[in-house]
């Protein structure tokens, strides 16, 4: 267990009012008929050296947040600054330089490696693009990165299809690390893996964080994984951030009804233990046409009148504990 107070409080990543709407085109002229509001005014910060867990169910926009921060998707509006530099405003050349500091680890280890490149070359790719050293040095760096994630030097000339899912995920980690970035978006890096392999990959991520002082944005939908790796946790629902707090605080005393429902859904390996489960009624509404007011109100067990009319603000209700909920605000 890591100690938060010893952490540097420098905010490496600052995301402000990030918005991403995807156009829905239809008809012969391909006119925009509607907008999918994948991410709507999301703001948060990631402190240097910490792991911010980002959770939410499928389609809530957590992956879109991760990719927009890295400009793999162009956000509709908002600002993202990494290490004091505004990533959104950057032009191609400065963005290329900035990419050295921000990397991503993907969910699907089977699709994230070029099947025609030996894995050593895949790991070297970033070094080549950024002209780091000469070919021999790049190869040495690639080998040392592979060794860091538990592979051997003779693996470097093999092709991705010769590796298992867990090994490939570690190769993906080595590739992301080769440029020695400061900030890494981990986009559900373990959800495609066997449970036995998950902890192995999580431990590698933790070890590397300690060794290189990395900052992670850890996207996941598995609460246990998030509890294991995060320092702070953010919860998203339908494109909005609903709660953000220190891990212990959030797991012990969730303020938002959605977070409470999520936490009550974590399976506990003890059949004798009875506990109250909060079952949410209905489905997640479509992000094409999200509910007015609080986006959670049609499913919320606490909903009052104001919830369907006015959107709650994302506020710091307790020190370091942010929530967007009218009822939680009143109850305090």
């Amino acid at each position: 267990m890591r100690n938060n107070s010893s952490k540097d409080n420098y905010e490496l990543v600052v995301v402000k009012d990030l918005v991403k709407y995807f156009p829905v085109r239809a008809g012969i002229f391909q006119r925009v008929k509607a907008w999918v509001q994948a991410v709507d005014k999301v703001s948060f910060t990631v402190r240097e050296g910490e792991t911010l867990g980002l959770v939410g169910e499928s389609g809530c926009g957590k992956t879109t947040v991760g990719r927009s921060i890295l400009r793999l998707i162009e956000p509709t509006s908002g600002s993202v600054s990494i290490n004091g530099e505004d990533v959104i405003q950057m032009r191609a050349q400065s963005l290329k330089i900035a990419r050295r500091n921000m990397q991503i680890i993907f969910q699907d280890p089977y699709a994230s490696l070029n099947p025609r490149l030996p894995i050593g070359e895949s790991v070297m790719e970033g070094l080549h693009i950024h002209n780091v050293g000469h070919p021999k040095e790049r190869w040495d760096i690639a080998i040392s990165m592979l060794k860091k994630v538990g592979l051997e030097d003779y693996h470097a000339r093999r092709y991705p299809h010769e590796f298992s899912g867990g090994q490939r995920q570690r190769i993906g980690i080595a590739r992301a690390l080769a440029l020695q970035p400061k900030f890494i978006v981990c986009d559900e890096p373990v959800s495609a893996l066997d449970v036995s392999i998950q902890s192995q990959v999580l431990n590698i991520l933790k070890d590397l964080q300690n060794e290189f002082g990395l900052t992670y944005l850890f996207i996941a939908h598995n609460m246990s994984v998030v509890e294991h790796i995060s320092d702070r946790v953010a919860v998203m629902y339908l494109g909005k951030m609903v709660e953000l707090a220190d891990r212990e605080e959030l797991f012990r005393k969730p303020l938002h009804p959605y977070t409470q429902a999520l936490l009550s859904a974590i399976p506990i390996p003890d059949p004798t233990l009875k506990r109250e489960r909060i079952i949410l009624k209905g489905d997640v509404p479509s992000p094409l046409n999200p509910p007015k007011g609080c986006r959670f109100h049609p499913r919320c067990p606490w909903a009052i009148e104001i919830c369907s009319q006015q959107e709650p603000e994302f506020k710091e209700l307790l020190p370091g504990h942010w929530t967007a909920c009218w009822v939680a605000e009143q109850n305090l």
Binding site: M102, Q103, I104, F106, S112, E125, R175
Partner: peptide, 26 residues
């Protein structure tokens, strides 16, 4: 739409490099 193309992009690869190294060989 493949993830490894996105990976190259996130490493800062140019369009030319993505086409010649990721697309054409595959």
């Amino acid at each position: 739409e493949q993830t490894f193309v996105e990976a190259s992009r996130s490493l800062g690869a140019s369009n030319y490099r993505i086409i010649t190294r990721d697309m054409i060989p595959n």
